[in-house]
Design a protein around this nucleic acid. Structure first.
Length: 198
DNA sequence: AGAATGATCCTCT
DNA sequence: GAGGATCATTCTC
């Protein structure tokens, strides 16, 4: 069941929290890939210094100002695309960065695209998951309520199984605990690492 | 185990 | 012309 637009038209932190456990699915010409969202970050409005929209409206962040439930995909560091989900009412710039998924469908295709066969390493990062799922800027602005890229209903997590922490990779706004992830997940950016030797 | 670095390019000043 | 919501590899302790 594809999530309705009303799911996204809510406070961003609530959307980030509720996205955990949902299924992100991309139907590409090469095949279908999908995975369960296990880590996400909120970027909220003009007053959030880490949010692209804090520097005003530009052609690049235009999508964030639009209707909720659309994909905001942008290119960064000359290497990777990052996938966001636009939230809140039209006109208010906010989005949720999808940081990690647990692969569920099209694992062979993801392995080929990533040139990596370690399941936990396939999509445990915002840049990695875009490579694994074949997401690029042609999907910028795609409607997640009905296009090649959609988000479907999935698992519900209890509050006890979810952790909040500072966002990663930003210079400003680290005081906010706006990153949420599944506590026991092996597929989050901090999980699945080699265990510490004693 | 933690810090530093190179790859690489689009966007805005 | 600088810098960025990253990743993999190489360094240094």
């Amino acid at each position: 069941m594809v999530l309705k637009r009303s799911f996204y038209e809510r406070p961003t932190l609530e959307v980030a929290r509720k996205l955990l456990g949902k299924i992100l699915k991309h139907k590409s010409p090469q095949g279908i890939t999908s995975g369960k969202i296990v880590e996400a970050e909120a970027y909220i409005g003009p007053d959030d210094p880490a949010c692209h929209a804090s520097k005003g409206r530009t052609p690049r962040n235009e999508v964030m100002f639009g209707q909720p439930g659309h994909a905001y995909v942008y290119f960064n560091y000359g290497m990777y695309y990052l996938l966001n989900v636009v939230t809140e009412r039209e006109g208010f710039p906010a989005a949720v960065l999808i940081r990690a998924i647990e692969p569920t469908e099209g694992i062979e295709l993801m392995s080929t695209r990533r040139r990596c066969f370690e399941l936990t390493q396939l999509a445990n990062g915002p840049g990695k998951l875009c490579v694994a799922m074949g997401i690029d800027k042609s999907l910028n602005g795609a409607d997640l309520c009905g296009s090649a890229l959609i988000i479907e209903d999935g698992q519900e997590y209890s509050d006890a199984s979810i952790l909040w922490a500072p966002r990663i990779g930003i210079k400003h706004g680290r005081d906010k605990l706006w990153r949420c992830y599944v506590a026991d997940g092996k597929f989050t950016t901090s999980g699945g690492r080699p265990a510490r030797r004693s």
